[in-house]
């Protein structure tokens, strides 16, 4: 009877361990979805992305009320970086109005000021903010220049409803082992199919890559090369 009890306890521990193990991963995905206040809460988009990434094998995190400094300190350790919120081609803005910049050397949080190669482990950065990929110098180009494999952004203005939806679908298709480019394209198609009157700017997707970064498949989880 005692052995039976021990067996039951061990079985229960095994089942509990099976539930915990998938949450632990060598690959980190950070998702930032600031909550700026009423009707401007991007945390759901970050949460949905993290849920899919977790299924892909990433140790996925999401946050809505951290300053840019936290995201900045995590960035060199990230294999995936995803941001939904306000910004432009030169910066992304967190809930407390602090920012990470593309190329603003006087700020301590400027991607261009990182040591070259410091983002070598980054497989994908997604900047879901207005104009993030606009012009020849932007968040995407700075990220790839410092070692990131691939970056996605938008040349135009994007609206919250469609861009939140697109983000969820992007990670859904990445979780289905679609390449980055195809996942983004399918997410765009699904978004229009659901908001059957306008793209809300997500048709202005743009990519930067080093090597063939945007052709990569991120499922199961990978790091930058």
């Amino acid at each position: 009877m005692k052995r039976f009890k021990i067996g039951i306890v061990l079985l229960a521990l095994l089942l509990a361990a099976m539930a915990i193990v998938p949450c632990v991963s060598a690959y980190r995905a950070d998702n930032w979805g600031p909550n700026y206040g009423l009707l401007e809460d991007f945390s759901n988009a970050a949460y949905n992305a993290a849920a899919e990434q977790s299924s892909m094998g990433y140790g996925a995190y999401y946050d809505s009320d951290n300053s840019a400094s936290t995201a900045w300190s995590n960035l060199p350790s990230d294999q995936v970086f995803s941001f939904n919120g306000h910004g432009n081609n030169g910066k992304i803005i967190f809930y407390d109005n602090t920012a990470i910049y593309a190329n603003y050397p006087s700020s301590p949080q400027s991607i261009s000021s990182l040591t070259s190669g410091q983002l070598n482990d980054l497989a994908l950065a997604v900047f879901v903010s207005c104009n993030s990929g606009y012009s020849t110098s932007n968040l995407l180009t700075s990220t790839v220049a410092q070692g990131g494999d691939a970056a996605i952004g938008f040349t135009g203005e994007i609206t919250k409803a469609q861009s939140d939806y697109w983000t969820g679908k992007l990670w859904y298709y990445l979780d289905q082992s679609y390449s980055i480019q195809n996942a983004a394209n399918m997410a765009q198609a699904d978004t229009l199919s659901s908001y059957w009157y306008a793209y809300g700017g997500i048709d202005t997707m743009t990519y930067r890559q080093s090597g063939s970064g945007y052709s990569r498949v991120l499922d199961p989880a990978v790091a930058g090369v």
């Binding site: 009707l39 401007e40 991007f42 939904n84 919120g85 306000h86 910004g87 879901v128 903010s129 207005c130 203005e157 994007i158 609206t159 919250k160 409803a161 469609q162 861009s163 306008a198 809300g200 700017g201």
Partner: peptide, 20 residues
Amino acid sequence: GGEVLVDALNGEVILFNPFN
């Protein structure tokens, strides 16, 4: 700015959809 869907029959705001 952004996009706003206004019901053309009664003026109700169906969706307030600001820019990111």
